[in-house]
Simulated assay, not measured.
Amino acid sequence: MSAELPRAAELTMQQAIPPWHFAMMNDQERNHAYRQAIETAVRPGDLVLDIGTGAGVTALLAARAGGQVFTCESNLHTAFLADRVISANGYGDRITLIPRSSTELVVGRDLPGKPDVVTAEIFDCGLIGESALHALEHAHRELISSTTRLVPSGGRLWAQLVESESLHGLNHVDVVEGFDLRPFNVASTRGYFPRRIDCHPHTVLAPAFRLFDFTFGEPPVPRTRQLTVPVTRDGIAHAAVMWFELDLGNGITVSNHGAGSCHWEQAVQTFPAPVTTKAGAAVRITARHDLCALTLDVERTRL
């Protein structure tokens, strides 16, 4: 058992490590899916690169499956605790922890060679907000080969238009107690932010639609898409709600769609100027991502 930390060190850890780590570690659906996928992908003796290890769960799963694991974590405090977790579980000889981002790794210096398997759980509620695509682009360019197996192997991002003054009010303000506060809206978030959609009154205005498909076995590139979405209900489109599906291979998936015990919330992007919708008409959605950020623009059109 690792020695207890001094109280000052404990306080530093509590301040430096976000508390959502605990919800993530206790997400049984996520953990079970990754265990199945890693046990399927990793063969005894494989060299495994684990990107963004957090508390070390994915690295431990890969080592238990027979891999020789090199894992990285950019948060130095998280990396320190992950190293203690790895040692406490008896895998210190099978896992090498590197306290740096994967984009700083060099084959031949940090890794003995190009890995047979890459595992990663660096996905936020909207899939790309934790620079997952940026890390994968770098990995394709600098770290992996054409035969490297990836867990997950890909993902899909979905969206749905909703009417919800509650969600819109999380990111915009109008008149309060007779005072015009709209100048403050320059500080509104232009991208998405996490929220439990079921905690906010909302009305669905159109069927769900796929925004982007990602194949992680190929280098990701920035993309722009225009979609025409048929509207099924009169209303006001205040926001788009987004969720992902991760393909972990062999039919194993994990998603943050809807309610449940999943630790991920849904991604919400509000529209600065809400759009009036009419059943039987349509809206045009322009979706863009630059590997790190995603934005949606909406305008009315006709079928």
Rank of each mutant, 00 (worst) to 15 (best):
E10I: 07
Q14N: 11
Q15N: 12
I17D: 01
P18T: 15
H21M: 04
N26L: 08
Q28I: 10
G45Q: 04
D46M: 04
I51F: 02
V57P: 12
L61F: 04
A62S: 08
R64D: 12
Q68E: 13
V69C: 00
V69F: 00
F70K: 09
L76E: 09
H77Q: 15
H77D: 14
I86T: 00
A88T: 04
L97M: 01
I98D: 04
I98H: 00
S101A: 14
V106N: 13
G108Q: 06
R109K: 08
P112N: 06
G113V: 04
V117N: 04
V117A: 07
A120T: 09
D124L: 04
G126E: 12
L127P: 02
E130Y: 07
S131G: 10
A132F: 07
L133P: 01
H134T: 08
L136F: 11
E137Y: 11
E137R: 15
R141L: 10
P152V: 11
G154E: 09
G155I: 06
E165V: 14
F179K: 07
V186Q: 11
P194N: 12
R196M: 14
H200G: 09
L205A: 05
F216M: 01
F216N: 01
P220T: 03
P222S: 02
R225P: 11
L227Y: 10
V231L: 04
A239D: 13
W243E: 03
F244K: 05
D247E: 09
G249R: 08
V254L: 12
C262I: 09
H263I: 05
E265A: 07
Q266A: 03
V268K: 06
Q269D: 08
P272W: 07
A273D: 14
A287N: 02
R288W: 00
H289C: 05
H289E: 04
D290A: 08
C292T: 12
R302K: 09
